[in-house]
Design a protein around this nucleic acid. Structure first.
Lengths: 202, 202
DNA sequence: TGTTATTCTTAACGCTGTTAAGTTACCAGA
DNA sequence: TCTGGTAACTTAACAGCGTTAAGAATAACA
């Protein structure tokens, strides 16, 4: 192993360390509560060192989002490979996302309710991100439901949006609204998803 | 009219002016983009003067939220007085909220996705705010639907939450997700609400 | 006119993201 | 082993932020 290679490895590992520390602070203190100086202190380097590994604060957030979508995409493919019933696949996919949000509200908020890290739709399509890939796979699942005659023949993106909305709304409510029914989030989740499936079934 | 009364009136008017200017900046630039210094410049006073009329930045946001819930509550009562069919009332109420969100995404974001200005559930119930009153009226509408045998006999707060979630999710998606189907928000809104009503109907 | 309360401003503290410039550490070639 | 260059990192600074303490100006009343 050459020395330049060793250096590259160390650099990669250091980038990882920065990213992991950043995620912890982001999740714990929120977007505003996060600061480059706090991150610097945590990793025991000066604030400016971070800029050698990430373009800026939002670039750190982008990297964190991409990592989430990577695991989400993996999970989608797993669910898909296990179940052959597309409607069941769809239900499990949505419930997975909701469950993640309810278990990790701060991270969900960070990823979905903080900044439009992926820009406009055109930029997203061009950019070859994990977020884009995940959205495409999700659309495929919905289209399989329609093709199998399990869902009403609405446009696939409308239905896909509808389910994404369910998750977003549910988690948003549990995060932001103090007057939401505490401890009933799981009940509401099932009520919501199954009501939607019932309402959209052929 | 005494002079002290005149002063009180002027003070009230000035407070209004500050609040209106604050809302403009908040909506235009978001929570982070808003600053006390920018507000001060807009109203042509020093930053510290604002603190004589509002406790701090979040107190300004609270006042803006309360004003929204006041108009929303008025609208809820209007819809209710016009229509006798509770299910139709519920549908219109939800669509009003969604429509407001789609037309005023920045303000919706500010009110629902920025900070938990109303604290915990206990604090909300104690505090006698417009937000609390609005939530109670919304719950009443749902309960009327159940009492009239139009909805499945789930717990009222679960159903109320489900519809609030629909609105939150839809608007959240249109705000934050670049990959949402642009220009189709109205279609998605109707699909979502009617699917829910269909799914929750008795 | 003198006293007092109200209203507003100046100055400051300790934060923030980010950049420019300078310093140290290390590796390659002679 | 010495030297040149580069990669890694730091110091210092700019302009902005929310908020507070203390002082100045204004207006109301005696």
């Amino acid at each position: 192993m050459g020395i330049t290679e060793k250096r590259a490895r160390h650099k990669e590992a250091f980038r990882r360390e920065i990213l992991d520390s950043a995620r912890m602070i982001f999740i714990k203190r929120g977007y505003d509560g996060f600061s480059m100086r706090k991150l610097a202190e945590k990793i025991d380097y000066s604030p400016t060192t971070i800029y050698l590994y990430f373009k800026n604060k939002d670039d750190l957030l982008f990297a964190i989002c991409e990592e989430f979508f990577e695991t989400f995409l993996t999970e989608l493919n797993r669910i898909r490979s296990v179940s052959r019933d597309p409607l069941r696949t769809l239900r499990q996919a949505v419930l997975y996302l909701i469950n993640f949000g309810l278990l990790n509200p701060d991270q969900y908020k960070l990823i979905f309710f903080t900044k439009s890290v992926y820009g406009t739709r055109e930029e997203l399509v061009e950019q070859e991100t994990m977020a884009r890939n995940t959205y495409f796979v999700f659309m495929e699942i919905v289209q399989e439901c329609i093709a199998a005659g399990k869902l009403r023949k609405l446009e696939a993106d409308v239905i896909a949006d509808t389910f994404a909305i369910a998750s977003h709304g549910l988690v948003a409510k549990s995060i932001f609204c103090a007057n939401s029914a505490k401890g009933k989030n799981e009940v509401v989740a099932l009520t919501l998803v199954d009501a939607l499936l019932r309402g959209l079934r052929k």
